[in-house]
Design a protein around this nucleic acid. Structure first.
Lengths: 204, 204
DNA sequence: AGCAGATTGGACCTGCTGGTCCATTTGGGT
DNA sequence: ACCCAAATGGACCAGCAGGTCCAATCTGCT
């Protein structure tokens, strides 16, 4: 996976390319982002682009997807790893909303890529599916912790609930993009959390 | 809006082009659909494409979006127009799932277009946003009917609930596409409906 | 200093894409 | 039968995208 040794300088250039490409894709879509655009935005040359991403645009986009995915997950931390009380869900909710609110241009970078490139690049599609599964897994783990702690009813299905929450986020982000406003994400997310709360265990 | 008079034959050709393009976009994405592909799939010629869609690809895509939107709405009818009881929501749910289950290739044609073309074609973006608002409006109207009938609590917010349900659908469709299976949509939709039920008015 | 390899720059090529144009055929009304 | 507009076919064009290639430069190491 590391065919070419990279010096510090090389690493920096590579990172710059990935970040700039990510931003461009978020702003103009995958189709609206050409290698020339990236070249111009990063003050680099075609040679460098293919030096760092021998696989061409496809490989670059895959790197961007991974980078963006990590970014979103990190923005939810440490709350995401420690969902075990209503307060922790609340904090997680706040962090998530803050992240997307701060993001230049609304929408989910992952979701966009998923619908735009899923058909043309199976490898990327697989990576994105994996990523979404991972995210959903963290949420499910949080639900499961709540269940084990007796905060949620014993018959709560962690996987289903995790998936439902993630779907609400992704759907909310889609509407947030079309509306050019954050409120749909907020509404969708709060709806999913209310649903989660409805599984609260009856008084002990 | 109807600059060129169309004969029955012309109308049929135009419809054939729209339908085939819609299918192709669903299967290969907007970026993966060229006019040549459409030409080949419909046994037509470049001349016809531009005869029926003087605005070129952009106009064709807009027509496809409208067509797809109508299609999805129709698939939910008549239940969508008459949401006023738990049974009607149930029937609506069944119809919606059946529609997407039957669709070649999973995913939401509207959502895909929204994230793929929103940035490059403002006019299309506006049309898609309108469409989603309309859909959400139908759902909200249903919720409002339930509230007025006293089935839902008086303080239920129809717009928020309608948006939450739509977000769940769109998010569910996104996951359904990445998972290549229908269950995420089902889970997301049922989660949203459970949330709706949690607003049920206490026994009269 | 000197070398090898990483890094950078940019000219260049090729295929495809949206789009134009015009000649030809078709079809419905009189 | 005739005519005109609609419908059709397909050659053609210009621009741009991804990708190749190689020469030049920089960097760290001995």
């Amino acid at each position: 996976m590391a065919p070419a040794p990279l010096t510090a300088k090389g690493e920096a250039t590579r990172a710059r390319i990935v970040a700039a490409t990510a931003e461009r894709i978020l702003a103009a879509g995958l189709g609206g982002t050409s290698l020339d655009d990236v070249r111009a935005a990063t003050l680099t040359s075609k040679g460098q682009l293919f030096h760092y991403f021998p696989g061409g645009k496809a490989e670059l986009v895959r790197a961007v997807a991974e980078w963006q995915g990590q970014r979103v997950l990190d923005a939810q931390r440490p709350a995401l790893d420690a969902l075990d009380s209503w307060a922790s869900w609340e904090e997680w909710r706040t962090r998530l909303l803050a992240h997307y609110d701060a993001q230049h241009g609304w929408g989910c970078p992952i979701g966009s890529l998923a619908s735009e490139a899923a058909t043309s690049d199976p490898q990327l599609a697989a990576a994105l599916a994996d990523y979404l599964r991972t995210w959903s897994g963290y949420l499910a783990a949080g639900v499961e912790r709540m269940r084990r702690a007796g905060i949620l009813r014993a018959d709560a299905d962690a996987n289903r609930l995790g998936t439902a929450v993630l779907a609400a986020i992704e759907g909310g982000l889609l509407l947030t993009r079309t509306e050019q406003a954050l409120w749909p994400l907020e509404v969708a997310l709060d709806g999913a959390l209310a649903h989660l709360r409805s599984w609260e265990a009856p008084a002990e």
